[in-house]
Amino acid sequence: MTKVQNNRAWLLILPMLVLVAFSAIIPLMTVVNYSVQDVFDANTRFFTGTEWFETMLNDSALQAALLRQFAFSMTILAIEVPLGIGIALLMPKRGWQASAVLILITLPLLIPWNVVGSIWQIFTRGDIGLMGWGIRELGYSYNITRNPVDAWATIILMDVWHWTPLIALLCYSGLRAIPEAYYQAARIDRASRWAVFRYIQLPKLTNVLVIGVLLRFMHSFMIYAEPFVLTGGGPGSSTTFLSQSLTTMAIGQQDLGPSAAFSLIYFLIILLVSWVFYTAIMNMQKDDATGGHRHDA
């Protein structure tokens, strides 16, 4: 009797399977299909095997974009994570100040990607932008369309401005979850401010931080709209990140085969890194389970 019902339950998830097929599997298989063929027109195509993959992996422009992408993601993580923790630690804990600060901090998160690009594009202009004008007034010839260092710094600054609040919010909620008794015990143990951070706050933040880092890594690795609007990938190709190279190839040059192959490589990289993070989280929780309280079955 129970068995019949279990089988019927499988039917119930059928719509879900169909949905997943349309939203993920079919588009993905299309890409796989393109990546192993050379398409001339609607009727002429050749099977190419792994040729596109080899071409792509050996393409120096793409290799450069990939390195640039890793450099970018690591840089913003290195800045945003400590900064986010710092902001969370400084945020007021209760009262109207807490709500006010929360709202202010959340504001950048509410702005769409391309709008962020536009805002910063205007902001950094030498003639009418407050920042661009300000820096020039200080005597530095700031120009994001000519100087790659300026362009890089500005994109990183923009990302830090846009996304640090996310880390700060996550950490803030993590900090709020620490019972007051921990702080009391630390005071009685005469722990320094640093020791409180190192031995109470940081360990309790690990879980939210892993989630934060994971989100920020995936996000930044796919960054497109902001630099596209701000610098257009220049000067030269100094701020051309992976997704932009891909778009140029697929839409600009209609190189469907290579761009399909590249999409897959791109996808696999993100999958791999995410998997590493996921395993890390899971292992951490396994440690928790052995130490946590037992519950009645």
Partner: peptide, 27 residues
């Protein structure tokens, strides 16, 4: 004074030894 709370307050990342040594090392 020292205080023992309702729910155990320990420093998760430290060993038992380091937990016990913590108040002494702080001074």
């Amino acid at each position: 004074i020292a205080q023992v709370f309702q729910f155990p307050v320990i420093y998760d990342t430290m060993t038992v030894f380091d937990n016990l040594a913590f108040p002494l090392r702080n001074i």
